[in-house]
Every structure is written in C-alpha cells, then in structure tokens.
Design a protein around this nucleic acid. Structure first.
Lengths: 204, 204
DNA sequence: TAAATTATTTACCGATTGGTATAAATAATT
DNA sequence: AATTATTTATACCAATCGGTAAATAATTTA
C-alpha cells in the first residue's frame, strides 16, 4: 500500500526533461502565439517526436495548459507578490516594472503569454481564452479591493473611483505586451512606467 | 489616344462590388485576425469564388493591403483629425473616444486592425507588419511635436517630457483594442478614457 | 531469462491551408 | 456573326495542419 517512496517507473524512461520541454514550449508560444506555433515547430525545437510529445502532454491544448501553469507559477508569480507593497503607487510601479522585466527576459522581447493568448481564436474555441480572461478579471478585482483599502487608509483621496482606476492599471499593464511586440526598447518602457507613476493620483 | 471617358470595360462584368467586398473582408480580418481568416472564410462571407477573388485583388496579402487602405482612410481617419484640437487634453480625449467608437461600431466589438495586425506572424513574414509599426511610430512623432508645441505655448508645464508622454498616450491607445477583445463594455472603456483625462498633466 | 510496461521511431491519416489550370459564360468591338 | 477581352465556376494542386497506428527499443519486475 506504500506509495510514498517514488520508486523507479516501470517501463522505458523518457529521454527528455518535461520541465525543460515546457520552458522551450513557453518560448515558442510567446514568440509565435498558440495558433501559429505548429506541432512541427514544437517537435523540432524540443527535439521530441510527435508521438512522444502526445504521450507526455496529451494534445496541443493540454500542452498549452501545462505551459501556462509553468508560466504563472514561474515568471509571472509577481502577480501576487505586488499586493505586499505598502502603497498603491509602489504596487503599481512594481507591477509594471516586473512586467517589463518579464517581457525582456530574453534577447528578443515577446508579449505576455496570458495577454496575447486572449486574442487567439483556437484558444477561444477550446474554452481556454475564457479562463485567461477570467483570471485577469480576478486580478482586477483584487486591485479594486486594494484601492478601496487605500481610500479607507487615507492613502488615496476619497474622490478616487477604484473601479476606474483599476481598469486604468490593468489596461496599461496589458498594453506593455503590445509595446514590446511593436519594438519599444526596454529603456523606453521603463520610462513609460515612470510616466505612469508620475501621473498617479496624489496621496493627498 | 483619348482615355479620358471611362468607356465600358471590354469583357464580362464582375458581379460583386469591390468596395463592399473590402468592407466585409475588413470585418473578417478584424474579428479573426489576418492569420486566422482563411480563404474559405473570405469566399463564403463575400460570396465570391476564389479565382474571382484572386483576379480582383491578387493574393491574401494584397487583399489585406487594400482592406487596410479602406480602413485607414475610413473608420480611423480621425487619426489625423485629432491634431486640429485646441489643447493636448482635448486631443487625447478625442483620440481615445473616437477609438472606442470604432472598436464598438458593430454589435460585437473587435480590435483595431492596425494594432492587432502588428502581432501577426504571417504579416511579419510578408513585411507588412513593419509598415504598420512604422505608421504607428510616425503618429507618435506627430504627438511628440504637438506636445512640444504645447510646452512652447505654455499649455503644458516645461517639466513635461514630451517623448515619455507621447509613449504613454500611444500605449494607452493600443491597449483599447486588447480591452475590447477581453470583453470590456463600452461604458467601461468610456470611463477609462475619463480616468486618463483626469490624470492628464495639469495645464499649470 | 521471461514477462510486463513504458517510450521511441517510422510511417501514415483526413482535413485544411493558400493558390491555380482549365474551360464555360458574358460582355464590347469589329 | 465572328473576334476579343474579361469574369465566372469546377476541379484540382502541393504543402501543412493536428493527430495516430504499429512496430521496436529500453527498462523494471517476476
């Protein structure tokens, strides 16, 4: 009955690492998008034949879901960490700065997997796009609550509309991906962040 | 030698209207994106067989270019009109409000053809994406010049960084397409515009 | 060593992609 | 009426798409 000790698996061992494969697939999906990343793209860059890929991950959508999980729990884990910031201003600043870091983590900048995938038709048909949008909206709700708290704490003026302000922030956040794709330099985007912070409603 | 009077064309007349076809193609490209709009999509909704389509427009890329021209000279002609506005604040307000109108002109909102097409891989390979990005950057340059003028006129504070501020505006502008695709309502987006205007640097 | 289990390789599948050859249909011109 | 020019419809093309059947290779267990 004991299954605690992870005994060696029964059959032939797979000769590729699942986590590394997920990282490479993440790069592909980010650079080319889900729809335009073909199975041939995946098999050649991962150096894994199609049947092996399907045995390990299921199909293309399920592979994407695993990639997505690796992405949200890895590169964009800061999504949750920002709420530890003391002020809304530093929170927004950290959110945007960390985003820029993620977008430029490799030599060739790529958009955010979550944001850009919301425009995928294949993911929409598969019902995955809806999940992505729901996750983004949940994040937006957390921002609203945080801004409300800041109002109660006297950090933000009572005249601030938390919903509007949160919409403003998530909109800017999503836009960073487009800017990266459109060729903005990292320096430009860091300046953009500073511009946003400079315009942030005064703490009164 | 006279070719002034447009005599009736020689052969069999085509039984579809090019301009109407372009409008329907525009709808398709906006809703599905260039890559995911197939020739079958086009031929069925335009009710035109493939050889006729190719005789009239060339190929898919050239069709897109004609659609793009119809789009820039039609729905988004406001892109140039905004520079007639008296203040930078009203200019930005008009830019964003007109954008929202375009995104919601039909029942189902769609992204901006230009903005979303900058993420297309097929258009990138065809060298068209670069043209789109160049056009957007040209628009950004005009904004920078306008903000500089506003500083000279004393409308904007001398401390304003025109480049940064223009980058901020175009980023917000592009983000509207993403918000529309992500399901934001028109009311939400109009409120977003007001939030941006509220944060606009004071005229001093 | 034999059996059982899992992964790999090779080769293939039907469907869809963008694009086209060919011939019939429709018009103006001679 | 015959010729010429243009568009139409039918049928097809090679290439690529996501996905899989079948046989072989590698490993643990008995």
């Amino acid at each position: 009955m004991r299954k605690l000790s992870p005994q060696k698996p029964r059959g032939r061992p797979r000769n590729f690492n699942k986590d590394e494969a997920l990282k490479m697939a993440l790069d592909l999906f980010r650079r080319k998008g889900f729809d335009n990343t073909s199975l041939d793209d995946l098999t050649t860059t991962l150096n894994v034949k199609k049947p092996s890929l399907y045995a390990a991950f299921g199909n293309k959508e399920q592979l994407f879901l695993e990639v997505l999980h690796a992405y949200t729990s890895g590169p964009i884990a800061y999504f949750h960490a920002i709420f530890e910031e003391p002020t809304t201003k530093s929170l927004v600043r950290m959110l945007l700065l960390k985003s820029v870091e993620v977008l430029f983590y490799s030599e060739s900048p790529a958009g955010c997997l979550v944001v850009m995938s919301t425009a995928s038709e294949a993911l929409q048909k598969a019902g995955i796009q809806q999940k992505l949008v729901a996750g983004l909206q949940q994040h937006q709700q957390k921002l609203i609550a945080r801004f409300e708290q800041a109002k109660a704490d006297g950090e933000l003026k009572p005249t601030v509309d938390s919903q509007r302000l949160a919409l403003y922030v998530v909109t800017l956040h999503k836009a960073l991906s487009l800017q990266a794709i459109n060729g903005s330099s990292k320096q430009d985007m860091l300046q953009l962040v500073e511009q946003v912070i400079e315009l942030w409603p005064s703490t009164l």
